[in-house]
């Protein structure tokens, strides 16, 4: 594209160019199909969560009514009361929070350093690191389970938070490093070269110049780590390494509640617990949708 000093209106011009299938120009039947597609998509993705939500608001009697009622006749919060007053559940919650926050923080730090190095410097170890990252993101968790358990047991880390933070950080690094590297590549080298000429030392450049510029990318990456498969949501390692009841995390806690009980499964409490665990995430995703999706999609797809 030629360099044009585009006045503001020219930029907005681009917004109005036709998308591959511009919904403004869809006629009749096609438009109906399109709307139907959107509605089905939204319903499909939202349904399980919505159902938990409505179920959690029913009192025990209504919950077990057949045929099923969809909107609770009487909204009852007893399930929530029971869950919140359960100290074990609160303990699970706390564990999840601690582990997730630690994971996010450590991953961000490591990823920023590594991402900066990968984006700027030519190192012999670059390929080695990229190889390791590929290993970590390509293979499913189960591959690592046995030796990791052995490792954790050897260092007496079983049922300690570190046993989770270490693997979570490791497996979150590929995505985090990818995002930070991509971001650092967008900062022109000239800024740092100017700083070097001005006399800054390398570490100072990182702290005083690069870091302040990186807040948006750091925030987006932090979000992606937190809601990713290796923090709040993780199950397998937590199930395997956290044996003691008081060190379990929320997903494991809820899953155990719903499965192995010999008594009647307390579904209303389970629903309430599910909603409590997922509602913050739902709101989070809806509010930060733009950041998340754009953070992930803005950038070429690596072949």
């Amino acid at each position: 594209m030629s360099i044009k000093n585009a006045p503001a209106y020219r930029q907005s011009n681009k917004k109005y160019r036709l998308a591959p299938l511009d919904s403004k120009h869809l006629t009749g039947l096609a438009r109906i199909f399109f709307c139907l597609a959107i509605i089905s998509m939204v319903v499909f993705n939202l349904a399980p969560f919505l159902w938990q939500f409505f179920s959690s608001l029913k009192n025990s009697k209504e919950l077990y009514l057949v045929p099923v009622t969809y909107i609770p006749a009487k909204v009852s919060l007893t399930a929530y009361e029971k869950v919140i007053s359960n100290p074990l559940f609160l303990r699970y919650f706390l564990n999840s929070v601690i582990v997730s926050i630690f994971t996010t923080f450590v991953t961000l730090s490591l990823a920023s350093f590594a991402g900066y190095a990968l984006s700027r410097l030519k190192l012999k170890f670059k390929t080695a690191l990229q190889f390791l990252l590929l290993l970590a993101c390509l293979f499913p968790q189960i591959i690592f389970l046995v030796p990791l358990y052995e490792l954790m047991a050897r260092f007496s880390l079983i049922s300690k938070p570190l046993a989770l933070v270490l693997p979570y950080v490791t497996f979150s690094l590929p995505l985090a490093i990818w995002m930070m590297t991509r971001f650092f590549l967008t900062i022109p080298k000239e800024i740092e070269e100017q700083a070097m000429v001005d006399g800054f030392k390398r570490l100072a450049i990182l702290r005083k110049i690069i870091l302040p510029l990186s807040w948006p990318a750091l925030a987006t990456t932090a979000i992606l780590i937190f809601i990713g498969p290796f923090a709040w949501n993780e199950f397998l390692f937590s199930l395997s390494f956290m044996i003691k009841d008081t060190s379990k995390t929320v997903p494991v806690g809820i899953a155990l509640l719903s499965g192995t009980s010999m008594y009647e499964i307390p579904w209303s409490q389970i629903c309430a617990a599910c909603v409590l665990t997922t509602l913050p995430l739902v709101l989070f995703v809806i509010i930060f949708e733009r950041k998340i999706i754009e953070g992930l999609t803005r950038g070429a797809v690596k072949g």
Partner: peptide, 21 residues
């Protein structure tokens, strides 16, 4: 925006918790 958020949601929610659902 809402549709995109909702479509992304299943990935963001804990697998085990939603399996319970």
């Amino acid at each position: 925006g809402f549709a995109r958020a909702v479509s992304f949601l299943p990935w963001a929610l804990p697998t085990a918790v939603m399996a319970v659902a």
